[in-house]
Design a protein around this nucleic acid. Structure first.
Lengths: 155, 155
DNA sequence: AGTCTTTGTTAGTTTAGTCTAACATTATTA
DNA sequence: TAATAATGTTAGACTAAACTAACAAAGACT
């Protein structure tokens, strides 16, 4: 009989992704870094780390550096992958600016079904191999520019 | 000097969309209906209706039917629009099944930037006018089927 | 070693949204 | 019209995640 694990919240996933990223960027990950990256105060991080530790997603002792467990790293890596795919779709296909695309990706990466993420992955791979075509994309971009002009007036 | 309004939460947006839908489906909208549609208990609805009333998004008196104010209706309509566009994209382009697409749409409709929603709208309009082409889509669908077979084994 | 700064923790509060249990109102129908 | 069923509300508890204020530990600098 398995222990019934509560599902992760999307905030937890965010923290795992942040820690995963920081771990790639630097040698050691501290509370401070996580707080900065997540744009929260340090006590929020401390308390989240306690939850993540309980779920065996991070190694963490008071005043020590933070590390992901294998499970934690798997989740962090998966979130990063999703994030990348979504952002790529938004910038490459929908022509959204990088910053906006990145923020959008960050918000929706948790909530898309695995099916959709997979399908989006396939789509992006497919497009890579079999591009939409120069004239077509140019046409779309012009079409968009026209539409956007109008939209600006509504704001 | 304007009163600084707190932004709506995505849950509030969900309620407004639900009420908007119900209003189109039937003559009168009751707490019961909203609870069923949102899959929550009635007290949750009552308390949300108080918040929405405070923000002047619904007309609501104890034991009475619920109606959207003009502002509330605008928001409900906009959420419905977004929802439809996203679902359409997911079913038409990514070939996600209706139910999953609808659930995904419901979750991300709140968090996408206006830019992305606009761009997606443009994209869908564009595809309408200038379809991806029969052979291309067929190719993609087959490509997907292959990939999905593999994915199932991972689950 | 002693002080100051940076980093981290604890304790306690807040907010949004949910829930249950108990009560109240409205509607139905015998 | 009185009893019952359906609907709605109130009160109060819970949870996740954030915050501030105050304290504690570690590190750096003289």
């Amino acid at each position: 009989m398995e222990t019934k694990e509560k599902p992760l919240t999307s905030v937890m996933e965010d923290y795992l992704e942040a820690i995963y990223d920081l771990d790639k960027e630097q040698k050691a990950v501290r509370v401070r870094d996580i707080a900065r990256k997540m744009d929260v105060r340090m006590p929020s991080v401390t308390s989240m780390l306690r939850s993540l530790k309980e779920r065996e997603l991070v190694y963490y002792e008071k005043y020590e550096y933070v590390e992901l467990t294998e499970r934690g790293e798997d989740i962090g890596r998966e979130m990063r992958r999703r994030h990348g795919i979504i952002r790529e779709f938004l910038t490459e296909i929908l022509k959204i600016d990088y910053k906006t695309a990145d923020e959008d990706a960050c918000r929706i990466e948790h909530t898309l079904s695995p099916q959709t993420v997979n399908s989006l992955t396939d789509f992006m791979n497919f497009i890579q191999k079999c591009p939409l075509g120069e004239e077509r994309m140019k046409y779309f971009e012009e079409y968009q520019k026209r539409i956007r002009k109008e939209a600006e007036e509504d704001m």
